[in-house]
Design a protein around this nucleic acid. Structure first.
Lengths: 221, 221
DNA sequence: GTCAATCATCTTGTATACAAAAAGAAACGC
DNA sequence: GCGTTTCTTTTTGTATACAAGATGATTGAC
């Protein structure tokens, strides 16, 4: 995909991102420049560059003259992000309903079929992969490159949380039927219908997750 | 507002931002690290930090081992950005219709009245300022902090372009009447109506601007 | 004369060195 | 004993030095 050798700072940013996503750090943890530098075997310079990349996506907060601290979103902020994701997806759907190509519609149906197969096998990983394909096709078919980029950005940030939410009982099956509604609306060229279907589809994910997290908190207290 | 001394890199990023916004650089121009460093009287290190800030907001593009290049959006990309802005504002409006407080509604009416006064005086600067207040109130009243942040981010980026578009004949007056529709919808708690009014209000700005730029290009060729 | 290869130069990326600010510890006064 | 103040230590921010890739010129082959 890219024959270009990435700069060291880039790969470090990616690795740190993975670490934070996978729960390697708690909310508020300070990222020690010197410790991480020797851990990665580089100097502080590329690390500081990596920190800025992370700050840009909101994964860490840089406080001047204090340091950088990981920022794991709480239940409320997560719900807010899912709400925005729902709006972006709705917008993609509205545009895509008017602009989507026949071949893209076929791709959508194909991804959906593979999703269905994954549900039958209860294969969470496969489902997750095809689900992502499904959504990215819609982003692209919005015909708005900026919208597509923004949607992908937020989609990526919500990735680790969406996954947990899928584990809820019956969620995969429900999600599938929502996908089918989306495809139908896009096929009919119903812009508002597609927008509504996508908004609800994504918003429900956020709400489920919100309940999940809120529930955990209550249980822990 | 902030008693905190900003780091040097921050202020440099801001200055560069201003420079790019105000047309100090053309699309594709390369930002020379050493030249700018001595121009600002600092070393390359804080400049490189500043570059990353700018890359994050999309003002410049960093190409590994090549350098950073300013990226002035063209007519198409600008239209795309306005379309996304329209969707974000519509979302703010939809939420705000259910959540807005009475005092915020008063603030909105007040800002609108000052807008009107500015139109009468044909005072572009005053109009622009109050218009911004108007929109930011709606972002805040969405009750979704993440949405508010994202809306403000894009709003800021579109700032220099929105301004030019206001110069079109009759645009300020039209914009005013659109504002009044928005206030009415929010007062009535009509979520979909507020969303539609705001989407149209912002989308038309993008379209006007698109025509404006496209027209310039055609005339120049 | 054109094209290719090599070499010189310039630019970016990284490492190290230094300065200044914040955090923490110890001494002092009450 | 508690709070305050000073001093030490740690940590961030910036400058400089060095390494490696990219650009452009020069040379040579055909």
């Amino acid at each position: 995909m890219s024959g270009m050798e990435p700069r060291r700072a880039d790969s470090i940013a990616q690795e740190l991102e993975e670490l934070i996503f996978s729960g390697g750090f708690a909310d508020g943890d300070r990222l020690d420049e010197v410790r991480l530098a020797e851990q990665f075997g580089v100097s502080r310079t590329p690390l500081r560059e990596a920190f800025q990349r992370l700050a840009q996506t909101g994964l860490v907060e840089q406080i001047p003259r204090r340091g950088v601290f990981v920022r794991q979103p709480g239940a409320v902020e997560l719900l807010e992000m899912f709400e925005v994701m729902a709006e972006l997806e709705a917008a993609c759907g509205r545009y895509a309903a008017r602009r989507i190509s026949d071949s893209a519609l076929d791709d959508l149906r194909e991804a959906n079929a593979r999703c269905k197969a994954a549900v039958e096998r209860a294969d969470l990983d496969a489902y997750y992969l095809e689900n992502e394909r499904f959504h990215k096709i819609i982003y692209a078919q919005s015909g708005n490159g900026f919208l597509e980029t923004e949607a992908n950005r937020l989609h990526k940030r919500l990735k680790p949380f969406r996954r947990q939410q899928l584990r809820l009982r019956g969620r995969m099956r429900q999600s599938m039927s929502e996908h089918e509604t989306v495809v139908q609306m896009l096929t009919e060229g119903d812009a508002e219908g597609a927008a509504r279907a996508l908004r609800d589809h994504v918003a429900v994910q956020g709400e489920k997750f919100h309940h999940l997290v809120a529930g955990l908190k209550t249980a822990a207290s």
